[in-house]
């Protein structure tokens, strides 16, 4: 039986809303552990990306608290926070003519207060991050010559160069083909285990989440519909009510696959269309 480390980040009573009286997200209680991947899933507009921005410290909650190693996130200095927590947005951009090496090097920013150039230690970390993400081969290529999957690996390398303890990723496999989706999740699993990271990832692919994540948080209209181990949360019984889709499961070699069957009209609860495999 695997032991779970104490929570690295604790989220308690977290609520967020653009108007004080109407929070649209929360209340959420959450523990984020080292060496575990937490998949945040839910339909569009459920509040997944907002939750990620909150725990990354990019926006402030309306109420509740987020503790990193028992220190409130909003009391940490920006640079200190960035040394522990990194956030990769859904569609990271890069100026067209920048090289892969240049983009990865940007990850060292929180570790360099003074000095114009990267130190030898910085360079070693940059190279290690590139090796971990297998981007060394195209270190000198321009970003605008890379495929979507290659570019995503480069941004991941930049995040690793930040030497974070918590890796937060918003739909890292969006717009990638199946091979790259698998590669990215395999890489996340490997990094989480080997580098002792806590990984929080938003994804729409329930099968990838079930296969690679340890825990799952299912959001529906800003509320927690279910949370816990991924294989208990990502089951047809909990998903159907949230997604408005009927699911079937299929078993192959210790892996359970979710198959979306039919979309259900929320108003009339009638089946309106045939679906395919989810994700």
């Amino acid at each position: 039986m695997t032991t779970i480390d104490p929570a690295m980040m604790k989220v308690r009573g977290l609520q967020f809303g653009y108007t004080p009286t109407k929070p649209f997200l929360g209340p959420i209680d959450l523990d984020i552990h080292r060496r575990r991947i937490l998949a945040v899933v839910g339909p569009n507009g459920a509040g997944k990306s907002t939750l990620l921005r909150l725990i990354a410290g990019l926006i402030q909650p309306r109420s509740g608290e987020i503790l990193f190693a028992d220190t409130p996130l909003n009391r940490m200095r920006l640079r200190d926070r960035a040394r522990h927590i990194t956030f990769l947005p859904q569609k990271p951009t890069a100026p067209a003519s920048t090289s892969v090496m240049e983009i990865v090097s940007l990850g060292r920013h929180p570790h360099r207060r003074f000095g114009l150039f990267e130190s030898l230690a910085d360079k070693a970390t940059i190279h290690r991050s590139m090796e971990q993400t297998q981007t060394t081969a195209y270190a000198n290529r321009r970003m605008d010559t890379l495929s979507g999957g290659e570019a995503q690996r480069v941004h991941l390398a930049a995040s690793l160069a930040q030497e974070p303890k918590i890796l937060i990723l918003d739909e890292p496999t969006a717009e990638l083909d199946l091979r790259y989706q698998l590669q990215i999740f395999e890489l996340l699993r490997e990094l989480t285990d080997r580098e002792n990271l806590a990984t929080v990832v938003v994804t729409h692919d329930l099968n990838l989440a079930r296969r690679f994540a340890d825990d799952a948080l299912l959001l529906s209209c800003g509320h927690v519909a279910a949370q816990g181990p991924a294989d208990t949360v990502l089951v047809p019984e909990t998903l159907e009510g949230v997604y408005g889709v009927t699911f079937k499961t299929s078993e192959t070699e210790n892996q359970t696959w979710l198959l979306a069957q039919d979309a259900v009209d929320a108003e009339s609860s009638t089946i309106i269309d045939d679906g395919g495999t989810f994700g």
């Binding site: 926070r81 960035a82 990194t86 956030f87």
Partner: peptide, 17 residues
Amino acid sequence: RDLNQYSVGTELAASRG
């Protein structure tokens, strides 16, 4: 150096301190 970070996006820049 901050403008280098800013040029790859405000959210990435903010997450890097």
